[in-house]
Design a protein around this nucleic acid. Sequence first.
DNA 1: CGTACCGTTGAGGTGAGTCAAAGTAAGTGG
DNA 2: CCACTTACTTTGACTCACCTCAACGGTACG
Lengths: 232, 232
Amino acid sequence: MRQHIRAGNFDPADLLRLESTMVVSAYNRGDKIFSQGTKAMGIYCLRSGHALLWHEDSFQYKTAFRVVGHGEMMGYRSMFGEDTHQATAQALTPCDICYYPKEILMQLIEEFPNFARRFFQTLARDRGPRDGLLLRGQHISVRIRLVNLLLLLMENEPYEDDGAYVLKLPMLRRDIAALLSARPESVARAIKELQQEGVAKFNGRTVTIPALDILYKEAHQEQPPLVSNASF
Amino acid sequence: MRQHIRAGNFDPADLLRLESTMVVSAYNRGDKIFSQGTKAMGIYCLRSGHALLWHEDSFQYKTAFRVVGHGEMMGYRSMFGEDTHQATAQALTPCDICYYPKEILMQLIEEFPNFARRFFQTLARDRGPRDGLLLRGQHISVRIRLVNLLLLLMENEPYEDDGAYVLKLPMLRRDIAALLSARPESVARAIKELQQEGVAKFNGRTVTIPALDILYKEAHQEQPPLVSNASF
DNA sequence: CGTACCGTTGAGGTGAGTCAAAGTAAGTGG
DNA sequence: CCACTTACTTTGACTCACCTCAACGGTACG
């Protein structure tokens, strides 16, 4: 899922131009990288650290929908949509972020079909029906949503120690809650449950998972509802 | 939001080629246009009628997420994602649908920057954080979600009679439920409520709305929760 | 050693899901 | 045109997961 901007089959001159126009900035925890409602003029790419994307609806309810990690892009949806930002990006941890202005990107896209294709793919795969629903669908318990989030975060941070997987959460409990469209209290209760059953050990922001397959099983094999839901 | 494939600034020869490769098929209510899990080879465009897009998760829970109306496209996300279809498309009403194969589209996209731009925009605007959450966020009551759905459907079917807006629902109650991530019973109760308060009159699949602004107000001005939800 | 968050726990309330049954359309075939 | 079937819709009673509110325990930091 990661989407670096990498030297592919590009003209060195263009790459140089891309590099020269690129701006790298450092952000501290809590800093906003861009804000919902402002005009999208380019895209951002994380060199290090973590950021959180969240959307605020007309009821002032905030829902986080993506954790952006090292090497990943953000802001592209609004840029290509030729619209204002539909979300706010905020640094979860100190991070370095580079910015690519729209004009340069558009030029490269026109010139190099492969570059365009990569963006088409990124846009198309981003937030398809698949996830999102798994993290926020209310027919799934907070517990299962949490397990799915853990698995998602594990994809990006494979760290093994002594046969068990270890995951360092880059965020607060309330951010986890926002990602699951739940409340911090509910998250705490779900964590307690998983803890007691030995599925995962939580120690502050460090999560230890003894057996990944148990987690995976739980994430995808809850009993289906008995009654179907639509005219399918 | 509608996305016709129209004669823009294209080469007549290419348009001819596009037309010649296009296949138009007729579907009856309930027919599947494409199925989740199958390979996406092109895009579909509705000439008439309505279709419903729904996704089935690993718990066999079905969530509808889009009603496709006249002139709108579907299947493009999976095609550009170079992936299997992430949803199933099914005809809500009898409809005529034309199919454009991928190769032709890709050729046109490479050749005409404006054509590419339109697709970038379509992809980027489709299912951003904005809607979706309004229709399925569990912090919003089924009633408000229903009101939002009505407003969404009204956008495409403006029909005025005697000062009141009239909307003909192209779908069953259970499909509405699937769109709201709710149950048909809950939808029925929400409908009853709106009925009793005179906000909207439901008669089978015909909805009459005396005052649009009341509906609109309700859709966006519910009291915000007292406690914020994340470290924002 | 306060102060200020963050995280956890408990008690209580509620919206919406589940289940079951009755009511209403919409076909279909005689 | 009327039985008859089938599918869709609504209602009521019950249950439960999660939210709300409130209080308490932890940890970091000046």
